[in-house]
């Protein structure tokens, strides 16, 4: 499977004079054109994994190999919008001055539900709306891989649900790969084609779900069973 292969990845940080081994020997395949969800408690190393894949940090050892040429966009935990640019300018920030294809911009703005706010400044928007601008910015870049770090954590229940559906739809339409970090089990079950559970910097377990995302009934028996297993896995973890 041509995707991203991660081999023997290790990463440590120096915190207050102590060495903190965040990732110890991670082996993982991230399949192409699928949503891979990384699930774990806070501090387990999921964000670090994402930053290493995104090239924002260098691993101490191990390697990350990308199958084909890739174009990576990152949706951070915070919106990280440029306060001096309006919504449209922020969405086009990744294109580095190039003009978007006609109609592409309005399509993306409609996807994230920001029609009518194109000229607004970031500080005039709510936190959830800002996060949607950040997502639109990633989509406008035309990425083959989107890295997402708990992007919906700040959204309310209904907006989150809607954004999750939109994300599934966009992923199928654009056929891009997504590496999605979350601590919400429901979100993982709803979105993931592959769910990776990380514990203390190691991969503890891996689930492959073959059903199409977006049409899942989390209250059906197989999902409830899977959720029980995941909860049990996470509960065993020492902090």
């Amino acid at each position: 499977m041509a995707g991203i292969e991660i081999r023997h990845l290790k990463k440590a940080y120096e915190v207050d004079g102590r060495r903190l081994q965040v990732l110890q020997d991670v082996d993982l395949e991230i399949p192409e054109e699928r949503i891979t969800v990384v699930l774990g408690k806070s501090g387990c190393g999921k964000t670090t994994l994402l930053r290493l894949v995104g090239g924002l940090e260098q691993p101490d050892s191990g390697e990350i190999s990308f199958g084909a040429s890739h174009r990576t966009a990152f949706v951070f935990q915070e919106p990280r919008l440029m306060p001096w640019l309006n919504v449209t300018q922020n969405i086009l920030f990744g294109l580095r001055g190039k003009e978007p294809e006609p109609g592409a911009l309005s399509g993306i703005v409609a996807t994230v539900g920001l029609t009518g706010f194109e000229k607004a400044w970031p500080q005039q928007l709510s936190g959830g709306m800002q996060q949607r601008v950040a997502m639109a910015r990633a989509l406008a870049y035309g990425p083959s891989l989107i890295l997402m770090d708990e992007p919906f954590a700040a959204l309310d229940h209904f907006t989150r649900e809607q954004m999750q559906k939109e994300l599934s739809r966009v992923q199928q339409e654009e056929a891009c790969s997504i590496l999605f970090v979350t601590h919400s089990i429901d979100e993982a079950l709803l979105l993931g084609h592959r769910i990776v559970i990380i514990e203390n910097g190691r991969i503890k377990r891996l689930f492959d779900l073959e059903e199409t995302a977006g049409e899942r009934d989390l209250l059906s028996d197989p999902f409830i069973r899977m959720k029980r297993e995941i909860v049990a896995d996470l509960k065993e973890q020492k902090i």
């Binding site: 924002l56 966009a73 990152f74 951070f76």
Partner: peptide
């Protein structure tokens, strides 16, 4: 954190300075 956004989009040093 804003500089990282530029890094992710492959901004050069010059773009980084003038756009962020």
């Amino acid at each position: 954190r804003l500089l990282e956004v530029g890094d992710m989009f492959g901004y050069s040093r010059g773009e980084r300075f003038f756009r962020i």
